[in-house]
Design a protein around this nucleic acid. Structure first.
Lengths: 224, 224
DNA sequence: ATTATATGTGTATAATATACACAAATATAG
DNA sequence: CTATATTTGTGTATATTATACACATATAAT
């Protein structure tokens, strides 16, 4: 009776670029759900731990470089896979725009980015997994500055602001938002500016990881 | 290569009674770790989902009635089980004092409650699992009123207060704490009083689950 | 009857969050 | 080259929320 359960990992990898949140999907080569879209993932090998399995599958299937990866939830309902009893450990990942565009532009590959507002039908119970991942993402950015993992190393403040308005789907007062982020001291203002199109050039910022880990140690909560 | 991974579930079940937080452990009958203490749990059967597996193992091994159960984390490191590759989905449970005392008093059984400050050596990586569960419990009670799941149906306010001071390991101002809980309106004050030993008799309260779910729907966060 | 002990309650102050508008620097259109 | 459109950048006043704090009440024990 035991031992007939198969174990897979699946990854929900989010990317962000100029106001769009995307998720990485792959087109299935084989049955079941042949030619259907699914989350990247696959069977866990006997000699690798779960995170290694996710990273391996991701690099095999998409080539994406992951900045941030955490375990999301384990899905084990009967009947979630037509092949039999398959339990899947889902992970949640974030990538920076570079990795993002790279894969998105190579159309020959089987991996593609989809705007989370325009998703195709998904194989297995991946719709459910994705839903939970989106909730986690929205919840998480309000109390941990993981939003930076979706941005370039250097970014104008407006990028961060736009990321939050997009992710939370509501307006944010720029002054109050900056006040809050500034008070955390996780942003370093650089001596550089960028000018994109018209409008006043923007100062570039970078994310201070040291300070972030320090805050984490102190158990500091922040709330957007 | 695939398919040689075995899947188990483990449960970290917390109980609370008059100022002590306990966790339910079982004495192992077989190798490995024979006669050692471990979290209740076992192999997942092919025809049951994960939560059913936990409930089954818990009732088989301990007889405890669980009020609250949620998935904690999945542990899949190589070498965590000497029998080979075993991945375990850990759950997090809370029980009310009745179920608590019931099992705790029957010493003949192999299940026992241990104060989380006086734990024995644990089998496998269960120490690690328990540590994560305790962190989750502490984190969770500060923003969701799950503390009630550890109390009797009717309880004096001081019980709730003591539960929080114990769990968070810090003093709480009674008036401010009551203000906050009262503002949530999740407590119904009953027309009953209890007098335990000396001191002024205390009003009894009960937890208003309807109101709690309503708050949850509205996404209301509370912070102790 | 006195003492010890636990419950129950309100207000003043500090800290934090929110609401809100205009000047500065650039690109573009005419 | 001038005017206009667009984006960045900044401060203050008000409302809300959190914190600090002390004494009266009801009972059991002595």
């Amino acid at each position: 009776m035991k031992n007939k359960i198969q174990l897979t990992v699946d990854a929900v990898v989010f990317g962000y670029d100029s106001g769009n949140i995307s998720v990485l999907l792959v087109k299935r080569k084989y049955e079941p759900f042949k030619d259907g879209w699914a989350l990247p993932g696959g069977f866990v090998l006997e000699n690798e731990n779960l995170e290694q399995a996710v990273q391996r599958e991701l690099s095999e299937e998409t080539g994406a470089k992951i900045n941030y990866l955490e375990q999301l939830y384990t899905f084990g309902d009967l009947g979630r896979d037509p092949r039999g009893r398959v339990v899947s450990v889902a992970y949640f990942g974030l990538v920076k725009p570079n990795a993002f565009k790279l894969t998105a532009s190579t159309d020959a590959k089987k991996a593609e980015w989809f705007d989370i507002k325009r998703l195709p039908k998904l194989a297995f119970d991946h719709k459910k997994i994705l839903k939970i991942a989106i909730e986690r993402l929205q919840g998480k950015i309000t109390y941990e500055p993981i939003g930076f993992e979706l941005l370039d190393k250097k970014f104008p403040f407006s990028d961060l602001e736009k990321l939050y308005t997009t992710l939370l789907d509501r307006e944010i007062d720029r002054r109050n938002f900056k006040k809050k982020i500034t008070s955390l001291k996780v942003l370093d203002e650089l001596d550089e500016k960028v000018s994109i199109g018209r409008g006043r050039p923007a100062s570039l910022f970078s994310f201070n990881k040291k300070r972030y880990f320090q805050l984490k140690m102190e158990g500091i909560i922040f709330e957007i």
